[in-house]
Design a binder for these strands. Structure first.
Length: 545
RNA sequence: GCUCUCGUAGCUCAAAUGGAUAGAGCAACAGACUUCUAAUCUGUAGGUUGUAGGUUCGAGUCCUACCGAGAGCGCCA
């Protein structure tokens, strides 16, 4: 339960006496020095004939509450409350229990589709959004009590693969000795060739069709490309701590499609239009199920994926962490889920903005190619290596920068990627929160006696209140699918801790034993909380720095 | 042309689903290390929240119009 509910209950109980059933909301506030929380809802009943009586009744209640140290009810109707030490202590103890609780599955199953990796294409800076947001949300949902399943959903079928095969044949490239670096060069070349050379394009179209018909030779070519590319992508993702429960792809679901499509035809849920098969549900633009040559498209494989997931996972909730430019695609897909009766589960597209360069265009390097994820990672390693640290710690720090610098920005904004800001080691950064966490860890390690909480004084209360805000931001991140709320919170929590650290010594001669153990207890709870936040964000705390 | 998203400090971004005085970081300037890690902390300066209206006790947030930016609109994914 939200600890502030104790306060709002007091107000609600009084209102009920006057037959008012409004739900009261309390929020943390920095209105002034004497205000920890504010309640705004009284304004709504200001016209009530008993208003003055209600106010007096609430005042009386507050005076008798040991949760409230002081309060005021101003004329405009705001209630400003300073919380008592008793309240803070109790809440902090509850918070600690809550945070140390193991994840228990008590809600439904949610499947996360994120990562956006495509066979034959290198992971580039644009991929960090789906990877970070997806991983973070999966962690958050897990903590919230859901069973989570993560699936990268490889783009490993259709025209891109056909283009690669066509190009390999066209240029007589030896498929047996193909490397992933070769593939990364081949795809852009094949793609541009298909745009200028019609003959090449129709060749690829034909290969795509042959793949769908399970032509043995094509499948064997496909398999070789698939093996080389997925091995490379998986290993990079694993190095960067992006691990999935499943590495399934479009290719895993196509076998489910022929029967399904035949069934749709029988039920006349689809019809031929301009030679192509479209859904018969009058969507505008129409939902294209197969091309006029019968081969599958984006929607087709996504439908197949739902069939697969229903059969193998039966999730209650589907979350797709995919670029917001594909909004219409998901709108169509979700309409088809109902129209074709694919599933009764909840479907949600969690869109995000593009990562742009300083001119506002999607991120590229100077020569016009994509800035690869591995390059960014190496650049970070180089930058952080300047301080003589163990290489394992440097790589963990680099990975935390990769996550944090991306996750501080609201999901939907198209943000401008700036390497200097991204790798910033002071201010609001991964390095800052890692440093704070290390400081706390070091303090805890120095103590050999069990800490214990006592009266929360003025020196500790700001930090304590900041710690208590965890619930709010966690819930906010969960409800809006926005990890940045927790990333912002990580900064303000650490900032509050660093202030505390600077101004209040613990292992100092003038600090008595009680106060020492009391402060250590708060530091411990800070540490447990920030560790939890790290976990939510997909960041691993370093041991030292 | 239609649809969607966005416009906040010099720059990059927040802002509790409508609350009081719009906050951070960077950059600038000024301070704090004989004291648990200064990758830290403190202070100064910086704003008519694109413009004009509207809704109400109250608007960065909701509505309308306009200006500006970006994205998407049938056989790519």
């Amino acid at each position: 339960m939200n600890e502030l509910k104790k306060i709002t209950n007091l107000v609600e109980e009084e209102l009920i006496k006057f037959e008012i059933n409004n739900e009261i909301d309390a929020r943390y506030s920095n209105f002034n020095e004497d205000t920890d929380i504010q309640i705004n809802d009284l304004i709504k009943i200001k016209k009530d004939k008993n208003f003055n009586e209600i106010v007096n009744s609430i005042k009386e209640k507050f005076r008798n509450s040991n949760f409230i140290e002081s309060f005021e009810i101003v004329d405009s109707g705001f209630i400003n409350i300073k919380l008592s030490s008793t309240f803070l202590e109790e809440s902090l103890q509850n918070h600690k229990k809550n945070i140390l609780k193991k994840n228990v599955v008590e809600k439904g199953t949610v499947i996360f589709d994120y990562g956006g990796a495509n066979i034959g294409k290198s992971l580039h800076v644009g991929h960090i959004r789906t990877l970070n947001i997806g991983r973070s949300l999966a962690n958050i949902y897990k903590m919230a009590g859901y069973k989570t399943i993560t699936d990268i959903h490889f783009g490993d079928w259709g025209m891109p693969l056909a283009l690669i095969i066509a190009y390999i044949e066209d240029k007589n490239i030896d498929i047996e000795t193909l490397s992933s670096d070769d593939l990364e060069e081949i795809y852009p070349n094949a793609s541009s060739l298909s745009k200028e050379n019609e003959e090449f394009y129709s060749k690829a179209l034909n290969i795509s069709k042959e793949m769908n018909l399970k032509n043995e030779y094509r499948i064997s070519q496909w398999q070789k490309i698939y093996d080389v590319s997925t091995k490379n992508i998986k290993s990079l993702l694993s190095d960067l701590d992006f691990n999935f429960d499943y590495y399934l792809g479009e290719s895993d679901v196509i076998s489910l499609l022929p029967d399904f499509i035949n069934n749709l035809k029988k039920k006349t849920l689809v019809k031929i239009d301009d030679g192509a098969l479209i859904a018969n549900d009058n969507q505008d633009p129409p939902a294209l199920i197969t091309k006029s040559d019968g081969s599958y498209m984006y929607l087709t494989t996504d439908i197949g994926t739902i069939l697969y997931r229903e059969k193998n996972f039966s999730p209650d909730y589907y979350i797709y962490v995919v670029d917001q430019r594909q909004k219409n695609h998901f709108k169509q897909l979700f309409k088809l889920v109902d129209y074709f009766k694919l599933s009764k589960s909840k479907f949600e597209h969690v869109p995000f903005g593009t990562v742009n360069d300083e001119k506002g265009k999607p991120m590229k390097t100077r020569d016009g190619k994509n800035y690869k994820l591995i390059e960014l990672y190496n650049d970070l390693i180089n930058k952080l290596s300047e301080n003589n640290l163990d290489s394992a710690i440097v790589s963990t720090l680099a990975k935390s920068v990769l996550a944090y610098s991306d996750l501080v920005t609201k999901r939907t904004s198209n943000y401008i990627f700036d390497i200097d800001k991204f790798t910033n080691v002071s201010g609001k950064s991964a390095i800052f929160i890692q440093y704070s966490q290390v400081r706390a860890k070091k303090l805890i390690a120095q103590s050999h006696v069990e800490s214990r909480l006592s009266v929360i004084g003025n020196d500790e209360r700001k930090l304590v209140i900041e710690i208590l805000k965890f619930n709010h931001f966690f819930k906010m991140a969960l409800e809006t699918n926005e990890p940045h709320h927790l990333a912002e919170y990580a900064y303000s929590l650490c900032h509050e801790f660093n202030k505390f650290y600077t101004n209040n010594k613990i292992f100092s001669e003038d600090i008595n034993e009680d106060l020492k153990l009391h402060r250590l207890c708060i530091v411990e709870i800070f540490y447990q909380t920030i560790t939890k936040v790290f976990n939510c964000l997909g960041i691993e705390p370093v041991s030292e720095m």
